[in-house]
Amino acid sequence: MTFEVGSGLSIGVILATVILIAAMLIWVERRLLSFWQERLGPNRVGPFGLLQVVADMIKIFTKEDWVPPFADKFSFVLAPAIIMTVILMSFSVVPFAPGVGVVDSNIGVLFVLAMASLGAYSVMLAGLSSDNKYALLGALRAAAQMISYEVFMGISILGVVALSGTFDLREIVLAQEENGWYVIPQFIGFVIFLIAGVAESHRLPFDIPEAEQEICAGYHTEYSGMKFGMFFVGEYLGLVLISSLITVLFFGGWLGPGFLPPIFWFALKSFMFIAFFILLRAAIPRPRYDQLMTYGWLFLLPVSLLNLLITGVIILSTS
């Protein structure tokens, strides 16, 4: 078997790497957060606490996996599987480096957006099937938040798509080789995509669907054991996905000075954004739910539309 786009070997390697990185993020996040809060974080298990992930894994696998008797069994079990699946599916169109990837789809951008929308089913089903008022509240919030932020997410990428003239993520990276990184012409698009990405993966400060201080743990209140672990890892997978998408769409993917292999540049850039998301968690307080919606519809939507309009005008007038 050869290591090329779409071969079984590369699919396996990418799948394993992505899941491993998402699991490692549990440790990375705790460590980084604690540095920013003048603590040390988990540093006991293994060198620098690196094996903390193993300890967490053992814990989560050996925990009692309890399905509440009042829950709707089928959708309760299905929900955590959905989020893992859709996010892992989204990774299939991400071009990691030349010759590294699962598939080069000419509708890559649309595919990612579609999969992100399907992710809303996961939280909705989880909240509904739990038969718990906190879970239901969380699911309501999650559904409203994800659906509205998807709108701006889509519109904010359209500028990039218009500039490069393709939906293929690999082509978009190649187009940036000639035209320079799209973060410069599309800075507003980048900021909106970043904000929408935080809301989409419901990370802090937009973790309103699972706001611990308000509604327990939101839609996964009733989950325990490995099912909770899947939501947990799913959230980190979403974080990795958003970071790599920002890298691909706005920061030239694997492009970079030639003294390091392309995959390294991709990893470095993505890690910068992962660290930035963790910094957001450490620094920014959570807005109220209605503030989030108002902010989205009354500010981000007009701005993203304006951005798209101006981009279109410029493309037309220069071509």
């Binding site: 604690s34 540095f35 920013w36 809060q37 003048e38 040390l40 910094l279 620094a283």
Partner: peptide, 16 residues
């Protein structure tokens, strides 16, 4: 400013 202030705690010695 908040982001920067929090980030700059990276080079403050931990209290632990």
């Amino acid at each position: 400013v908040t982001l920067w202030r929090v980030f700059s705690h990276l080079w403050v010695k931990a209290d632990t």
